[in-house]
Amino acid sequence: MHKTELVDAVASAANLSKEEAHEAVTTILDEITNALSRNEPVNLVGFGSFSCRARAERSGRNPVTGAVITIAASTGVGFKPGKALKDALNN
């Protein structure tokens, strides 16, 4: 599902115009992004939780030349599905 399909589904389910649904979906995604950028976890009960995960600096190899390179430390996003989501996928 793409964002436009999600907007259409929200508009249909909530009886909103596509513009209102687009604004709602965009606002939700922006707030999740803002919370994660502040290193705050986002818990959506029944759906799952998003959290920041630190990746340490490590060495790797350039696949073309075989030279050893250093891969910089970074922060990624982790997602842990909630029980309701797991149950929905396994039924």
Score class of each variant (00 low, 15 high):
A21M: 13
N34D: 12
V45E: 10
A67L: 10
P41G: 08
L29R: 01
K83Q: 14
E23P: 03
G76A: 12
K80S: 14
R55S: 07
I71Y: 10
A54H: 02
T26V: 12
S49C: 03
E23C: 04
E23V: 10
E20Y: 06
E40S: 01
E40G: 00
A84D: 15
V64G: 03
S59W: 01
I69M: 13
T33C: 07
V68T: 14
G66N: 08
D30M: 05
I32E: 00
H22R: 12
G46Q: 14
D8Q: 14
L36A: 00
L16G: 11
S37R: 05
A88N: 05
K80D: 14
T4G: 13
A24N: 12
S49R: 11
G82R: 03
T26Q: 15
S17C: 06
I28Q: 07
A56E: 10
A21I: 13
N34S: 12
R55Q: 09
T26K: 07
T65F: 09
A35V: 00
S51C: 02
I69N: 09
V68G: 00
A35W: 01
E40Q: 07
A67W: 04
A73D: 06
I69V: 13
L29Q: 11
L29S: 08
K3W: 15
P41L: 11
T33M: 04
G78D: 01
V7N: 01
A84K: 08
R61W: 06
D30R: 04
E5M: 05
K3L: 13
T65I: 05
K83R: 13
H2S: 11
V10N: 12
K83F: 05
K80A: 12
L6S: 07
K18Q: 12
G76P: 00
G48W: 04
I69C: 07
A21Y: 05
E20R: 09
V25K: 06
A73Q: 13
K86Q: 14
L6I: 15
A84Y: 02
D8C: 04
L6C: 08
A13Y: 09
A84G: 01
G48D: 11
P63A: 04
L44Y: 09
N62F: 02
A67V: 10
A24F: 13
N90Y: 06
A35I: 01
E31M: 07
T26R: 13
T75F: 04
A11M: 09
R58K: 02
T33W: 02
A13K: 11
N62K: 03
R38M: 07
E40L: 01
A21F: 10
K80F: 08
G78C: 00
C52I: 14
T27G: 14
A54S: 08
N39C: 01
V25G: 08
K3P: 11
